[in-house]
Design a protein around this nucleic acid. Structure first.
Lengths: 295, 295
DNA sequence: TAAAAATACTCCATAGGTATTTTAT
DNA sequence: ATAAAATACCTATGGAGTATTTTTA
């Protein structure tokens, strides 16, 4: 036998009224079944809760100890519907979000800010990761959503949905003192400088997109250094290790000695989008995707 | 309609098994009523808890949010019998204890120490108070027990029980330099010195007991100063304001310049006892009284 | 097509009601 | 004498069982 919330409600009513008859009225029932319910509660607890005479009743020590506990528990149980509904609406919960370092300079900050504002109770778990790591994480469902650079491999298209968020042109990051005078907007101009690049292993699509810009112009640049994060690449440019092609939004990352130059002779763009599992029913995820839709 | 613990138990079982059939077996019941109970729980909560296909079920966001709450609540509800039983045994609860300052040097410390040891969960509320204040407090039931100096007034004898704890001889407290050489054990020896005394208003019984010692010997001492607490009286003796008659145990209160002298020519004693309301059923009080009994 | 949840119905345990007794003031 | 809790007994709601249907992987 086990304690039911009904018994706790009855106990609280009797403890507060200190009168079985009045408590029964308050509970919309008659006195005898209330007496029986309290007796059965006392049985289960293994302690008497009331000193009874037919004229007046009072709480025993066990009753005194139980009353605040019972009230607290009842209150918490009554709050469960609200809890469930808020969870179902995506107002509470958790969002595991991964992003490529580029997103850190474009889509991520405004999205995060407005999501936090609308869903302050949602715990957001952020992971910086490359696109292929994110795709693996999505495959094993260890993240809810990834902000990454396409493509989505064919074998994952059946379980993963993707939505484009932003397309940015590539621009040139170059050490200030290497800059040619008078708006040299041609990549060709800098053909003799080595380049800093993402490793092909880590981000093959992005790596190839950049190299193809050079190949289109018949250039075969020397790769002086590889780096995984945008800020490292910019740091290397600033240290005069070479030039780099980066998404336009990275120019928000100001660094002394680094100049960003739009290019006129290449059309290369880089796309960032959101990817998530088709079978992920999380209302928090839905809320996040709705918000991305709006922006 | 309201949530019953039965429904929470069912939910936890299904959420852990992720299978209605197996959960039903675990709960010693059949599957259909379990499905119905979960449905009715979902109705009350206003949220669905499981994504169901006939092949497999999984928790919704609402279910995920509810599961830890439900487990916690069930655990707490299951701990209520233990709580009630400990309260009934006096192992948890509160003891409001008042004591006269004299008790602070005799009965109180050992009693408190062993009670704390046996009932570490009991919260003890200590008040230093004179006997008459304690009796008033007992009358309006604002304390559980008082350590005081008798007598109990007649009009309270019907509602208050009393038990003698200790009887101590009165001894002389005297400034070191006033002490006559060679064991002057007669009160008479010091008849010319003024005395320090409890105010009659505050502790008439104790006041009168002390004065009667002098009167027995035909002495009428000058009262130089009155004080309510033992340590104040001893401080005044040390400041050479006069001599004092104090219970023997007060000699534990060493103070430079104060000498304690047994007296051979008086028989006066002071009694300390415990008083409590007859109608106080508190198991904590019972435990405390049992312990006093032993000592 | 087969495993599992939902539905339909049946039944009985027990929550709750009515009538009465007991008890303490 | 009376108010109030306990007891005895009855009723009926709804929790749980059995049989069957529906669903989807």
């Amino acid at each position: 036998m086990s304690i039911e919330t009904r018994q706790l409600r009855y106990f609280v009513a009797v403890a507060e009224e200190l009168h079985f008859g009045r408590a029964a009225i308050r509970l919309n029932m008659t006195q005898p079944p209330l007496s029986q319910a309290i007796q059965s509660l006392e049985d289960v607890l293994g302690a008497t809760l009331f000193h009874r005479t037919t004229r007046q009743i009072s709480l025993t020590a066990a009753g005194h100890a139980l009353l605040p506990e019972a009230k607290r528990l009842l209150q918490q149980i009554e709050s469960l519907p609200a809890l469930s509904q808020r969870a179902a609406a995506g107002d509470i919960g958790e969002l595991k979000l991964a992003f490529v370092s580029i997103a850190d300079y474009s889509v991520l900050p405004p999205s995060l800010q407005s999501f936090r504002q609308r869903h302050p109770q949602v715990k957001i778990e952020l992971h910086e990761a490359t696109s292929d790591v994110q795709l693996q994480a999505l495959e094993k469902a260890s993240i809810d959503v990834g902000l990454l650079i396409p493509p989505i491999p064919d074998h994952l298209c059946s379980i993963i949905d993707y939505r484009r968020l932003r397309v940015e042109p590539l621009i040139l990051a170059i050490a200030e003192h290497r800059r040619k005078r008078k708006a040299a907007t041609q990549l060709q101009t800098y053909k003799d400088l080595p380049i800093v690049l993402f490793p092909r292993k880590i981000a093959p699509a992005f790596h190839d997109r950049i190299l193809s810009c050079f190949q289109q112009r018949g250039l075969t640049p020397e790769i002086s250094q590889e780096a995984i994060q945008m800020q490292t690449i910019i740091a290397l440019v600033s240290a005069d290790m070479g030039i780099a092609l980066v998404p336009q939004s990275v120019s928000n990352l100001k660094r002394p000695g680094v100049y960003y130059q739009n290019l006129s002779d290449i059309q290369a763009e880089v796309e960032i989008g959101a990817a998530w599992r088709k079978d992920n029913e999380s209302p928090v995820l839905k809320a996040f995707l709705n918000l991305l839709e709006e922006q």
